[in-house]
Design a protein around this nucleic acid. Structure first.
Lengths: 203, 203
DNA sequence: CCTACCGATCGGTAGG
DNA sequence: CCTACCGATCGGTAGG
């Protein structure tokens, strides 16, 4: 089988799979450092030390500390958005809203450290990248607001402002990153609690 | 009327009312600086400049940057705790839970900037002071958990784990600091939405 | 991926 | 409440 050249001028340095894997490792490590110390107080020396590297070597994978933070944010919002499509295919308004609540709980509970950075370190993002993240968040909120509106129109939940209620539901579920103890708490039971609080304990 | 001396040795420098008022001004200004830039990136030069002072002058009111952060935290938690007593005097389980939800919404919505620092800058607190704040938060959570337990036992809300449900309610209401726009949003209506989501739209 | 280093910022203090 | 200043830390770069 002949290997076709890509059209156009080839990249000077096509990142190898190893390079990309190492880069992801860097992102995970940085997320943990920034979670524990915050973005400003968590230094690149800290990140490098956790990987048994020298600070200067990090620039082999990343252009700046700011880019590193952005990569963390991008990973978080991508994770949250990725499963939405299939949930939106569900027809029943009650079940769809229940699934959205579960989805948000399990997403946050699955990577509480990642979302701690996502939610608490936004001040470290430059304006341009913050705007990009905010746009994706608005889309996310819109999905929840639409599901709430459907649920109220079918009397599945009481009549409420759809945007406020969507924020309330996202708040109730996002908040988990502040108190979850993975050793003690069960994400499934937390999800059940949230679903019942909003939708009652009917089937 | 004779002015009685206080018993015991007098303080070397009794802080005057003016001093205390200025100090409060400093705390408010610092809260705004830390809200906008974060605790680490917000410098004492920033705070001083906002007050038209030199950085060194701040040490006339405060021992360290860390103490300044603590004073912000203390103000926030004191504010949240201060109105709890009267609410606990209410007998009816449904009404008590509704009042607790309203209280939390209006407290956060009343000073979203203050609570942004309180919730997002905890990494800046030293361990000792963080522990003190956490103890007061545990008490706060306990109050909500107890009200939830009462509400479930009287079938005012569905049967749920009291702790998880209390965290869910506190999350739903605290989250407001992340998205509230004081120009556009009405705290009373937000409170209504939260109360209806949890308690339905009965009287 | 490393050694060596620069420039800037920052919390805090001396001394008034 | 100010001027002047110190010591430490940190993001980033040169050059290999």
């Amino acid at each position: 089988m002949s290997v076709k050249r890509r059209p156009g001028r080839p990249r000077l340095t096509e990142p190898s799979p190893e390079h990309l894997a190492r880069r992801q490792q860097l992102i995970d490590t940085a997320a943990e450092v920034f979670r524990a110390k915050g973005y400003d107080a968590g230094s690149l020396d800290d990140v490098a030390a956790a990987l048994d590297l020298r600070k200067a070597s990090l620039y082999y994978y990343v252009r700046s500390k700011a880019e590193l933070l952005y990569l963390i944010f991008d990973r978080a919002i991508t994770l949250a958005l990725s499963r939405l499509e299939e949930i939106l295919a569900v027809e029943d308004a009650r079940q769809r809203l229940a699934l959205l609540i579960r989805h948000q709980v399990l997403t946050i509970a699955g990577e509480p450290g990642l979302f701690t950075v996502f939610f608490d370190q936004r001040a470290g993002l430059d304006h341009e990248r913050a705007q990009e993240i905010r746009a994706k968040e608005r889309h996310y909120l819109g999905v929840y607001a639409k599901a709430v509106a459907q649920a109220t129109s079918e009397s599945v939940i009481p009549p409420v402002d759809a945007r406020y209620a969507a924020q309330a539901i996202i708040g109730m579920t996002s908040w988990i990153y502040k108190w979850l103890d993975p050793k003690r708490d069960d994400p499934e039971q937390i999800a059940d609690t949230c679903v019942r609080l909003i939708l009652g304990d009917r089937p």
